[in-house]
Structure formats: C-alpha cells, structure tokens
C-alpha cells in the first residue's frame, strides 16, 4: 500500500512536470482554441443586442486569446506567423501597417481602418461567454482604466470598432460578413445599456 501511494505520488509529479514543460513551450503562442460555439442571444434587450455584436468574428478576430490575431470568416490563426508584438501593433520589422492601412484595400482585399491593432491581452474575448466579456469590459483593471462613459464612447465612436459595419471584401472580392445587428441599433443599445446602469445578467 505504502508503495502504491509513493507510486501515485511519483506519477503525479511526473504529470505535473510534463504539464509545466508543455505550458512553458506555449509561451507566446496561442492556447488551444475553444472551438465550442459561444451562445449568441438576439432579442430586443439592449444587453443582448450589444453582445450579439461583440461576439461576432469582426470583433473577436482582433480580441484573440493569445498573441496571434485571428482572421477570416472561420477565425483561423492569422497566416504568415503574424504576432502581437510588444505594443499590440506587430513586431519591429513588420508592424500591422506593413500590410494594413487606414482603410480597406479594394485591390488586395487587405482590410484596414485607423489604429489597426490587436486588443491588449487583458481584453481577450475569444472563447469567453457574453457575461465574462461584459464583466471584463467594464472592469477598469482589465479595460485600460476606462469608465462606463469611456467604454460607451469607445464602442460607439471608435473608427476601428465601427469598421465592423464596413468590413470590405477579401482577396477573392467576397464581402466580409457584418455583425447581426445594424450599426445604428448597436449604438443605441450600448447607450441604453450604460444609461440603465450597465447591468450584467447572470447568463
């Protein structure tokens, strides 16, 4: 029995160590992707409308859980080993602006908008539920110290956020999908939700 306990202890130690090696190998890379569908609820409630947009790939692709942006309608990892870099704008030798300019490119299909960049790591949305995203978005420790009014301004006025409704065409000339709620309805919903106290439901 004593031997069995020692055996288990050694096995547990080996497993822990191999996990530590695995996680240290993952530094700077994306974690395994959460491929489960995140639930989107569309209704007339301001919170539902707002979150239906924030969970859309046009938003989540630049809020990845890791250091590699997502791209495309299937949110695959950005081709060409593109990385976040120290300031969320890519690496020293190539930044986001090496390819992305301040507007969509109608010839190459490369999307663009002012301030094209990744959201900071503390604002990763990929794989999170709408409640988790909302909590994170309203938490000054994780949202860049923004007040609810500043969040409202960011969501309703920032050109990069509003790009989601003018996403242009891809390299094959195929239009990118827009969020499931219109820009006007989204802006109204955000303002209403914040005016009502930014209450986050349980689910």
């Amino acid at each position: 029995m004593k031997h069995t306990i020692i055996g288990f202890a050694i096995l547990a130690l080996i497993l822990t160590m191999s996990q530590a090696v695995q996680s240290s190998n993952n530094i700077g890379q994306n974690k395994a992707r959460n491929k489960e569908e995140v639930e989107v609820i569309i209704s007339d409630k301001p919170f539902d409308k707002m979150m239906a947009v924030l969970l859309h790939k046009r938003c989540v692709n630049c809020h990845p859980d890791g250091d590699i942006p997502l791209q495309g309608e299937d949110s695959h990892l950005h081709h060409f080993d593109i990385e976040r870099g120290p300031n969320d704008h890519g690496l020293a030798g190539y930044t986001c602006e090496t390819c992305h300019s301040t507007e969509n490119n109608i010839f190459s299909g490369v999307p663009g908008a002012p301030h094209w960049a990744l959201a900071p790591r503390s604002m990763a949305w990929e794989g999170k539920s709408r409640v988790e995203i909302a909590q994170q978005m309203m938490d000054p420790a994780r949202n860049g110290g923004r007040s609810p009014k500043e969040i409202e301004k960011h969501l309703t006025e920032h050109e990069l956020v509003l790009w989601a409704w003018d996403p242009g065409v891809d390299a094959e000339g195929i239009e990118r999908e827009k969020p499931p709620v219109s820009k006007e309805d989204f802006i109204e919903a955000v303002k209403q939700w914040i005016a009502d106290g930014a209450i986050i439901p349980d689910k």
């Binding site: 060409f80 190539y94 602006e97 090496t98 390819c99 300019s101 490119n105 010839f107 190459s108 490369v110």
Partner: peptide, 20 residues
C-alpha cells in the same frame, strides 16, 4: 494580396507591402 513580400519597399523608413 500582401502575402508574399516581393513588393516590400520603405515608406518613411518602415517596411510596407506596396501592392496593398
């Protein structure tokens, strides 16, 4: 399509893919 880099030049000292 900004994918290969053959068209890389510098704009104000930074690498830019000129096809895009």
């Amino acid at each position: 399509k900004a994918a290969c880099g053959a068209c890389t030049i510098h704009v104000d000292g930074k690498a830019v893919r000129s096809c895009s």
